[in-house]
Design a protein around this nucleic acid. Structure first.
Lengths: 101, 101
DNA sequence: CTTATATTTGACAAATATTGTCAAGTCAAT
DNA sequence: ATTGACTTGACAATATTTGTCAAATATAAG
């Protein structure tokens, strides 16, 4: 249950890499990476794709941390947040079974 | 499990009101209300507040339909949508118990 | 204490996304 | 054909988000 920032930072440090190095590998400005790892900027879908590929073995972990952070961000201040989440889950499940082509 | 648009349309029709009438009561352009009821535009937080007050008895229903739609919108195309929802739920619960003043 | 390297921060620019409006269109009933 | 309710499309207006750069901070080494 880690934030996307925490997830990315831990993965990077595990590999002993610098922001500069990851940045160079993925063409992302290191200062932007810093902000992302500090949850100061949300990475874009493309950045998450690149990062999740970069940290291969933890691909899904990265994506799930990112998606869940985006969800939380959307409703964290709401009293009905949890109730809304449950309904959203049902809606997703419904869409999944009834999805178009 | 209704969309925000469907929820609002049904509530309005139950009261036998016209878009024009609800619009006048809440200072919202009727053509915008039309789009909202057709899920073509997301209402803003302020509009949802006004609308949920207007349809008093169904206040929470309106808010939950809106919040859950926003959540779904955020992740509906993702394979990991459901997994992310579960994690987001945990994060919300965590924030709820550990929330700052 | 000075230098070197890594990271962070703040302010702003740039890009994107979202919402609001208006004129014109459809549709049904009369 | 006219009227009334609603819808649609294109564009304007706003708002939000993201990216960049220079400066600040931090840490370690010499």
């Amino acid at each position: 249950m880690k934030s996307i920032g925490q997830t990315l930072r831990e993965l990077r440090e595990l590999k002993g890499l610098l922001l500069r190095e990851v940045g160079a590998a993925l063409s992302i400005d290191p200062t932007l990476l810093s902000k992302i790892e500090r949850n100061d900027r949300m990475p874009t879908k493309e950045q998450v794709s690149a990062l999740s590929e970069f940290y291969q073995d933890k691909k899904n972990e990265v994506i799930i941390a990112w998606l869940s952070d985006k969800l939380v961000y959307e409703i964290q201040d709401e009293d009905l947040a949890l109730a809304a989440m449950k309904v959203a889950e049902q809606k997703i499940e419904y869409l999944k079974t009834h999805k178009a082509q």
